[in-house]
Each structure stands twice: as structure tokens, then as C-alpha cells.
């Protein structure tokens, strides 16, 4: 049986090769054929999840809810000490210095990332801004969001903090952050689906052990490094359920 693994489309392009290396490592460790399918679009990936085409996924917290509660996926692990945070930036020359300086009717540039958009819109609430009174400019990636700010097309832009941190010095010199989330409890999670649990011949516990001890071998540690992770941290079912409850408080 061949399984399909995918990664939330908000991963950094710097780690594309790393996910292929991880897939090779996983196939060697499990003796299972696993195809890695990467998507540019959250919508297309969700279509395939709904059609039960995905067996393993590194999911954003937004999708983890649907995967665990509707599709029976099991949470295995999250990257150690990595949480998902968002940054709101403006043009570095702009007069805006805090969220409350932004006014109704302003334009907000976003990438196609539902989690960052959710956190970003929450950080705009103190300024009485919502989707009803701002113009959203949805762009393909964070570099385009930065360009929209630099070109003064958008008043503010939402970034995944990791994506903002990875921007070049040249881009960062032209934009400035006005607020950064410090949520600390929302994280991407590696999940396995019911077909993999039932048909791979590997028990959930053995798979959990394999992933969570990955950093202990030289090969595993170098594979983790190619993903930008130090190691995996176990995520049990209750931790994942609680994170889903927290996500539920953030969506309207």
C-alpha cells in the first residue's frame, strides 16, 4: 500500500528539500512507500484531505481541528519550542507606530495563510478593525506582502513570524513591525491518519517513539536540521484537543 504525506502550504521554501529528505528517512525507517505531495494552495490541499487522499500531514493548527475531529487523525508531535506567531508590519517610513494608528478603510496585505490571517485580524481588533471595514489584499506569498508595503499599496501586512525573520536584510530595512503576537500555545503538528494507523503495520505507539527519538541518531538529527527543527516534542491527544479548543476561541 502506498501512503501520501503532505505539509501545510505555509512552510518556508527554504525547507522544500528538507521535507523530501524527511520523507526518504521516514520510508527507510518504516519500510513503507510514502509519496510526498506538496501544495501551493490551502484550498487544493483541503480538497484532497476531504477526499481522504492524505495519510500523514504536518498540519497548521487551523487544519488540525478538521483532521483530528472530523477525519480521525492522531497527533504525534510538534517541533520542539516552535510556536506559531504573527507579525503586523508597515512601511518603515510610515507614520503608523501602533495598531491603533490604523483606521477604518485601510488596506491590509496578507498571504494565503488562514492561521496568520486569523491571528492578524485579532491583533487589529483593539483598533476597531475587522474584515467589514478594511480592504484585504490577498497575495501569493510573504515577499509579495512586503513588496506591497514597500510600494505603499497596503497600509499594513500580516506575516508568519518565522517568514518575517527569514526575510532578507534589504527587505527588513524597508518595513517595520508594529505588533508581534506572543500566543505561545498554537503550533504546527505532525499527524497520522486512520489508513496509516490501520494498514502500515506500525502501531501508533511505535510510530510516536520513532518520531520523538529521531534526534538521537546522527541521520535523524541531520534530517531534522534540514527541516529547521532541533527535535520533535510529543503531542498527546489531549494536548492536541486543547489546542483545537483554543483555536476555536480565536475564530469568529
Amino acid at each position: 500500500m502506498k501512503f501520501t504525506m503532505t505539509v501545510s502550504p505555509d512552510f518556508s521554501p527554504d525547507y522544500i528539500a528538507g521535507w523530501y529528505i524527511f520523507n526518504t528517512w521516514l520510508q527507510n525507517q518504516t519500510n513503507q512507500a510514502i509519496h510526498l505531495e506538496l501544495y501551493n494552495s490551502f484550498d487544493k490541499q483541503r480538497e484532497d484531505i476531504k477526499a481522504d487522499k492524505i495519510d500523514l500531514i504536518y498540519a497548521n493548527p487551523y487544519d488540525a481541528s478538521m483532521l483530528i475531529r472530523d477525519k480521525g487523525f492522531v497527533a504525534i508531535a510538534s517541533p520542539y519550542r516552535k510556536t506559531d506567531e504573527a507579525v503586523i508590519c508597515v512601511n518603515s517610513e510610515s507614520e503608523y507606530s501602533c495598531v491603533e494608528d490604523l483606521k477604518s478603510g485601510c488596506t491590509i496585505a496578507t498571504a494565503d495563510d488562514p492561521e496568520v490571517s486569523t491571528i492578524g485580524m485579532i491583533m487589529l481588533e483593539p483598533a476597531d478593525l475587522s474584515k467589514e471595514n478594511v480592504t484585504i489584499e490577498e497575495l501569493k506569498n510573504y515577499v509579495m506582502v512586503a513588496k506591497s508595503l514597500i510600494g505603499n499599496k497596503a497600509d499594513a501586512g500580516f506575516f508568519l513570524k518565522e517568514a518575517f525573520d527569514d526575510m532578507s536584510k534589504f527587505i527588513k530595512s524597508q518595513i517595520k513591525p508594529i505588533v508581534t503576537s506572543q500566543i505561545s500555545v498554537i503550533r504546527h503538528t505532525f499527524l497520522i491518519g486512520p489508513d496509516f494507523v490501520n494498514n502500515s503495520g506500525i502501531s501508533e505507539e511505535d510510530f510516536r517513539q520513532l518520531i520523538n527519538s529521531m534526534h538521537e541518531s546522527e541521520k535523524g538529527a541531520s534530517t531534522l536540521k534540514s527541516l529547521g527543527f532541533e527535535k520533535w516534542e510529543n503531542q498527546d491527544h489531549e494536548e492536541a484537543e486543547f489546542m483545537i479548543d483554543l483555536m476555536d476561541t480565536l475564530v469568529s
Binding site: C98, V99, M123, P126, V179, T180, S181, Q182, I183, S184, V185, F242, L246
Partner: peptide, 10 residues
């Protein structure tokens, strides 16, 4: 209220 933070309890 501190900027960007969430207060969480259960």
C-alpha cells in the same frame, strides 16, 4: 493589556 498576548486558562 499587553500587546500581542493572549491570556489562557482552563
Amino acid at each position: 493589556y499587553p500587546e500581542g498576548k493572549l491570556i489562557v486558562s482552563r
